[in-house]
């Protein structure tokens, strides 16, 4: 659909402005930074400002000599800390995604089955937390889970336990925090597909002899698949790199890669190593991100 048949100079200018302004912005502030991260991940750390060696040595005697090193990546492989962090992040992200699906699917389904004026309200209730501060919502769980937190106090007063349980600063709290903050991201795309689901199809399957669970397996689930995939990616990808939740709710051993990267950068001030951590994280994520993009573009086509 070419809308401009024979554009004049002025019209072409407008077209260039529309395309070029955001394009250049994103090139400069989104794409180029990745190139820089990649570059610095091959540099050596220095106690200096900035704390890394240059990629090109511009000094006169050296000419144009490439000063690249694979030390950072070698270190990532050698030091167990990183491998453990990556694996643990993947494990936590996967399990929380599964939990989000388990909670989000029935919720989305129930919303999609609700008749109209009420449905909008239920949807609003899902979206509302999305607008309120993420940080404060994670913090709310500190109030709930702490040694002197609400849950412990409740259990103590009922007499189920004699001394407070360690709930805060554990992996369990991290799972809880991730499910809590990301479940709306699961519900919304699921709702979008389930809402379009034709109830006639369910009845047709039942009419042809499928029992309720078979109807779910044969009709509902396959037709909801695009929403399930989108929802899972929307939870998995950010959860994998999550920093705030493990930092606030996790224990010292809740080593998620986002937290490791953050600490490497701010505590150890090893920028090249942090960059290498980021590059590997991005490599892990590239497949799910591309899958997500494919999914986003499909409705357009």
């Amino acid at each position: 659909m070419t809308m401009v048949v024979n554009p004049g100079k002025r019209d072409r200018l407008w077209r260039s402005v529309v395309i070029a302004t955001p394009y250049l912005w994103l090139l400069l502030f989104f794409l180029v930074p990745f190139a820089i991260v990649l570059k610095i991940s091959f540099a050596d750390p220095l106690v200096a400002q900035p704390p890394f060696t240059a990629f090109f040595d511009w000094s006169a005697d050296a000419g144009k000599r490439v000063l690249a090193t694979l030390d950072n990546y070698r270190f990532l492989l050698e030091d167990k800390l990183y491998l453990v962090s990556y694996l643990k992040s993947i494990k936590i992200a996967l399990i929380s995604t599964g939990l989000c699906l388990l909670l989000g699917f029935p919720m989305a389904y129930a919303i999609a089955l609700t008749p109209y004026p009420w449905r909008n309200l239920l949807l609003l209730l899902v979206i509302l937390p999305f607008w309120t501060s993420f940080l404060l919502r994670v913090y709310a769980w500190m109030v709930m889970l702490g040694k002197q937190g609400l849950i412990n106090n409740l259990l103590l007063s009922v007499g189920v336990i004699d001394e407070p349980l360690q709930m805060l600063y554990t992996d369990g709290a991290v799972y809880l925090g991730i499910v809590y903050t990301y479940v709306p991201f699961m519900i919304l795309p699921l709702y979008a597909t389930l809402e379009k689901l034709d109830l006639d199809l369910h009845e047709a399957a039942a009419d042809l002899g499928a029992r309720p669970l078979q109807v779910f397996r044969d009709v509902t689930l396959p037709l909801a698949m695009p929403g399930i995939i989108a929802g899972c990616l929307l939870v998995f990808i950010p959860a994998l790199g999550e920093y705030v939740i493990p930092a606030l709710l996790g224990g010292l051993d809740s080593l998620m890669i986002g937290r490791t990267l953050y600490d490497e950068f701010f505590v150890n001030r090893d920028w090249p190593l942090a960059s290498a951590v980021a590059v590997v994280l991005l490599l892990i994520l590239i497949l799910p991100i591309m899958l997500f993009q494919r999914l986003q573009q499909e409705p357009e086509a």
């Binding site: 034709d198 006639d200 199809l201 047709a204 039942a206 009419d207 042809l208 002899g209 396959p222």
Partner: peptide, 20 residues
Amino acid sequence: SPPYERPVNMMFQSYAVFPH
């Protein structure tokens, strides 16, 4: 008896052909 146990089948107005 539930629909899946009846000796009755239906052709839906929307046809309800399974799209997948």
